[in-house]
Design a protein around this nucleic acid. Structure first.
Ligand SMILES: [Zn+2]
Ligand SMILES: [Zn+2]
Ligand SMILES: [Zn+2]
Ligand SMILES: [Zn+2]
Lengths: 148, 148
DNA sequence: ATAGGGTCTCTAGCAACTAGAGCTTCAAGA
DNA sequence: TCTTGAAGCTCTAGTTGCTAGAGACCCTAT
């Protein structure tokens, strides 16, 4: 039986995140010690590892919820699981296409900058008017979500 | 002078979003009519178009804030603007690299599925254990942010 | 004059956490 | 055995970039 800290170290999932997953019902309520601290067995550890890995592959928590409940039913057809993964792959592909359009636009913008003053900077210029763009990146209003 | 609805139609930015931008200080407080309704002039429209376009190119609002204040100082060197755009490009590139790793992993996972039962589905199998993966996609825990 | 739209403010919700306050429990050293 | 400091507990609020709703007000047209 692991404490939440050990489980965190074992799986690479932060302690508050584990509690959050319990809150939203992704993990079952943990057993408690005499002093009310959470205790985890191997099954819980495996479940959390599954969640972590699926998150790394970009699955949203709702999909993970479905995948977990499927994995509890070993005799069912895996068609439903494949649908979820296919949907995820489509989302990834879609995102890549859009990002590549942005990438090209940003590169072009930067290549054209003459490093003078703001008043003739192509970066500012392009941003002011989409007519300066080659691609139709309309509808791309999703977060890039920052760093690593 | 445009009402907020006309401005919305003219720029493609939704009405509540315009109010939100004003709230967070990205747009200056709008003039008001006798009946307390917002009125916008051409300058406001251009500023909003700038914001919209930068958002389409994935710039976070904080970067847009910086870019806007730069664009108000036409005589300054554009170096700062270029830094922001370069940073943005780096973020896009980084994101693409990560997504391509996920893409390959998802494709491999799906290709290996024999379409039998859950108990021998490679989708579930791979998710259970990163050892089944070829790539190091650790640290990829960003949202994919869904549809378009 | 009244009906319908558009607009106003304010609050709450989305995803998926993260950070903090203020408290209790546990494990190890003296 | 006592003590101290780390780790755990609950609860709340903040993050990003919006979106949706409630309930009231304004504005134009018939
Ligand atoms: Zn420049
Ligand atoms: Zn453009
Ligand atoms: Zn399968
Ligand atoms: Zn993996």
């Amino acid at each position: 039986m692991l404490s939440i800290g050990k489980l965190s170290a074992a799986t690479g999932v932060k302690v508050p995140t584990i509690r959050y997953y319990e809150d939203i019902g992704l993990l079952p309520e943990a057993e408690r010690s005499a002093g009310n601290q959470r205790l985890y067995d191997l099954a819980a550890q495996e479940r959390l590892a599954f969640i972590r890995h699926a998150r790394e592959l970009g699955f949203p928590l709702d999909s993970i919820r479905e995948l977990l409940s499927l994995s509890d039913q070993p005799d069912m057809s895996c068609a439903a699981a494949d649908v979820i993964a296919t949907r995820q792959l489509a989302a990834v592909n879609d995102r890549i296409i859009r990002l590549q359009a942005l990438q090209r636009e940003l590169e072009r913008m930067l290549a054209q900058c003459a490093h003078g003053t703001i008043s003739d900077c192509m970066v500012i210029e392009v941003l002011s008017d989409h007519a300066n763009c080659l691609h139709d990146h309309h509808g791309d209003r999703r977060p890039l979500s920052s760093q690593s």
